[in-house]
Design a binder for these strands. Structure first.
Lengths: 128, 128
DNA sequence: GTTAGTGCTTCCAGTCACTGGAAGGTCAAG
DNA sequence: CTTGACCTTCCAGTGACTGGAAGCACTAAC
């Protein structure tokens, strides 16, 4: 199938699929007219990438996951470790965002928010 | 003061300060030897940037905040609006991360995590 | 047979907010 | 006078795409 069809079926933009080829994540062969020709296995890889990227794995992590996916003698522990590490990362990000939110909403709560110029948010940013 | 001192006092790397100048956020004048010379006002701007960036505002938002900071006739409502919009953004990001976390931890919980190859995480990514 | 329109190709540049490094000028201490 | 820290500019790279231009390839309609 052509790249447009592969894009539709994988949920990835064609541009992204070409980019994934450029960085060695997929290797479709070419039709006689020079068009990329995607096999079902290629499509599986693309779908796999779409999902794992959607779960927040970096390209390099996806590369690793793909190699585990295609390695029949993988240990599930390896995959689980990656998933748990990612969960830890997510937890750290959530904590950071929550702390940011707390600061910002405290500032916003103190700001009367009318047409007068005095504003505790600005004051705080200015460090005064 | 020189860039090194400004860096120390603002908490920003010198590289970043030069970058901020390049994109027009600060305009230090130059000493006779060509070194950047930062006034106290410049330092205030840098500190302001350090804080607002730390609160998750984009460079363009910081630019806007700076202009409000230096506009004595600003309306505090403008600043508050920006802060509240940012809080909304943070909330959306937290929700997204929480949903990711839920998916990932459900997957990880189902994975026995030993040296056998069968792994529900991989199965899910593969869409099987 | 020609034309229009869509889809494919490559390549280059831009995004965001820096960060690293090379090559070279300047300054203060010893 | 040398050493080493600090400063300068410029160029390139990061991650993961995304946009756009220029130019083939294919299909359907007229």
């Amino acid at each position: 199938m052509n790249i447009g069809t592969a894009a539709q079926k994988s949920g990835l933009p064609a541009k992204t699929i070409r980019y994934y080829e450029e960085i060695g994540l997929v290797h479709p062969h070419r039709a006689e007219n020079g068009y990329r020709a995607y096999s079902d296995a290629d499509l599986h890889r693309l779908r796999f990438l779409q999902r794992s990227r959607g779960l927040g794995f970096s390209i390099d992590e996806c590369r690793l996951l793909l190699s585990l996916y295609e390695n029949d003698s993988r240990a599930s522990a390896d995959v689980k470790e990656l998933a748990l590490a990612k969960i830890g990362e997510i937890d750290r990000k959530i904590a950071e965002l929550r702390s940011l939110r707390k600061t910002l909403s405290a500032l916003a709560a103190n700001c009367h928010g009318d047409d007068r110029p005095d504003c505790p948010i600005i004051d705080d940013l200015a460090g005064t």
